[in-house]
Design a protein around this nucleic acid. Structure first.
Length: 313
DNA sequence: AACCAGGACACAA
DNA sequence: TTGTGTCATGGT
């Protein structure tokens, strides 16, 4: 019914990674993290030797569309049946060399020490884009709720091992484009509904081809993403970093802003523009990774959030 | 019960 | 260029 696989990897804090505000569909159930990757039910567990994964054999029913898996995962699917998951989890990334590339300053040392094992995922572009359009001025808990509703109502049911709660694929752009704005508002996304709807229509119509952004430069890809309604600099950078793997992309939200002001410039009050220029040069080739460490660090320092996103070894 | 949340956008000054 | 109001919802 389902198969099992061990990914031998060191320095991988699964809980921190899955709860650090990159992806919004993972939930913990009796010691496992259950989610959906590449339109398949999957669950993960941290063990001493690495990461343990269980997934259903074969793909669930899935209407193809902008949610098409990345080209590389299609080509190698035959040779490496688990490549889609290794790619999502980025288990082959040498974290040590990423950490070595960070600036050797006090804030980064603290963040890296506090969040050891935190990783960046490599998500499907459409799901990532749509999720972050829904993310604006929303707490991570609420984003999870909205995305869950959206999948329940407009996603396709997936094959799940018996005894497990049923799950759904993330709805394609085509499916959402066929919705009325009121359908989307029904998922409690409020003023984000028209943005998601218009973006879904543009993607479905082929006005912007997400897959083609893989071969563009960061600047080109960002320019394309910024054409979509509801996508500004912050959300564009999230998609560039979390879905397309542009490691220079540096999303600045309220938490990262807090981190930059408090940790780097506690004295002077710098404008958002100057801070953006600082982030572009100071954090090196893996700035996006550094950003995730700062984000998770300042968030976990907040006592109210510590229980939901607590990191564990 | 206020305050705030992985913002974007139109508009004013 | 930088500041302000607006949008919708609910967690803490």
């Amino acid at each position: 019914m389902f198969t099992r696989r061990l990914f031998p990897v060191r320095d991988y804090d699964l809980a921190a990674t899955l709860t650090s505000g990159q992806a919004f569909r993972w939930c913990e159930r009796d010691g496992w993290w259950e989610g959906v990757v590449n339109a398949r039910w999957v669950r993960l567990k941290q063990v001493d030797e690495g990461l343990l994964a269980e997934a259903v054999e074969g793909r669930g029913p899935r209407v193809d569309g902008s949610g098409t898996p990345a080209l590389d995962s299609r080509l190698s699917a035959l040779d490496h049946p688990w490549h889609w998951l290794a790619h999502y989890l980025q288990t082959d990334v040498d974290l040590a060399s990423v950490l070595l590339s960070f600036p050797d300053d006090e804030p980064m040392r603290t963040a890296v020490t506090a969040c050891r094992g935190l990783r960046l995922l490599r998500q499907e572009p459409w799901e990532c884009l749509a999720s972050f359009i829904l993310s604006s001025t929303k707490q991570i808990v609420q984003i999870q709720q909205i995305v869950a509703l959206l999948c329940e109502r407009f996603g396709e049911p997936l094959v799940v091992p018996s005894g497990h709660e049923r799950v759904f694929s993330f709805p394609t752009a085509e499916r959402l484009a066929a919705c009325a704005e009121s359908d989307l508002r029904g998922c409690k996304m409020g003023f984000r509904a028209p943005n998601l709807l218009r973006t879904a229509k543009m993607i479905a119509a082929g006005e912007i081809n997400l897959q083609s952004l893989h071969t563009r430069t960061v600047e080109d890809a960002r320019t394309e993403l910024l054409k979509l309604p509801g996508v500004g600099n912050k959300i564009a950078n999230c998609v560039l970093l979390f879905a397309f793997g542009f490691q220079q992309a540096f999303p600045v939200d309220v938490w990262v802003m807090k981190a930059l002001r408090q940790l780097y410039f506690p004295k002077r009050r710098l404008s958002a523009k100057r801070l953006a220029r600082f982030t572009a040069t100071h954090f090196g080739p893996f700035a996006g990774y550094a950003q995730q460490y700062l984000f998770h660090y300042v968030r976990m320092k907040n006592p109210e959030l510590r229980k939901s996103g607590r990191q564990r070894r």
